[in-house]
Design a protein around this nucleic acid. Sequence first.
DNA 1: TCACCGCATTAGGTTGACCAAAAATGTTTA
DNA 2: TAAACATTTTTGGTCAACCTAATGCGGTGA
Lengths: 148, 148
Amino acid sequence: MSVSKREEEYLEAMYILHKNKGVIRVKDIARMMNVKPPSVVDALKKLAEKGLIEYEKYDRILLTESGMEIAERTYSKHVLLTQFFIDILGIPPDIAEQDACQFEHYVHEITVQRMKEFASFIQENCSYVLKQFLKEKLEEEDQKTPPR
Amino acid sequence: MSVSKREEEYLEAMYILHKNKGVIRVKDIARMMNVKPPSVVDALKKLAEKGLIEYEKYDRILLTESGMEIAERTYSKHVLLTQFFIDILGIPPDIAEQDACQFEHYVHEITVQRMKEFASFIQENCSYVLKQFLKEKLEEEDQKTPPR
DNA sequence: TCACCGCATTAGGTTGACCAAAAATGTTTA
DNA sequence: TAAACATTTTTGGTCAACCTAATGCGGTGA
């Protein structure tokens, strides 16, 4: 049974809530996902049918093992992509975050893996060149945002 | 008026058809997009209403100036992303293609721009290291796909 | 302990994107 | 030039994801 992009996003939101606050509440999911509570309830029902979460109405919400697995995989892509964009390309953090947050749902495992390996490789073998690049780009950005 | 991801994909498909074959036909769009002709017609009507294409039924289909602009922007992101994945990360072309094909609709201009600049910078300043990386990864891949 | 309030849920409805089947149009060929 | 074929369009319907308004639940303070 396949998991849609949107479902993956719900799972990831729940995963983060679980990690940060311990409990997963409809209201908080809604806020994170920028939707209204009824939409969350719809989503929860579907995810429960697919066996990705445990959900009984008015009861606590939990990720099942397979839901957790998907969420973790997605979240780790998120983290890796964000790091790559910031540390290697020197993208501003908020932009990097937004890009990662979409790409994580499509990118192949091999691509993120390679980004990770590439980052290490460059940092080990020509970290000076990388620093040079990042410095240049940072200066270019500062030019565009003139001092107040 | 905003353009959905899907609409952007239709525009890009039409752009490529126009570029490669001169004419844009419903049947060909359908094949490229993996949908049936009625879905294409639905999409065409909406795109025409938004002023992104010229479309009268049974008549030829053309991108307007603003439609063309969106398509070109999207397509150039596509090309750039694909190149980066292949030339810098050493991702197999078909995977690179698939990843680019999704990310192109979300990625910020600055990120693709940076990828381009990064690629040039590395190729100019430590092309040997890059070659080394790609060689290693290629060898790893060959190991996994044993000779027949 | 019960009334209240915030939160969760249901009911009912919208929109975008898709499809199969049928109808309309355009094109080719006998 | 008209029949046959190919392509496009319409019709009518599905499904996912969302919403507002109304209703239901459950913990808290008077």
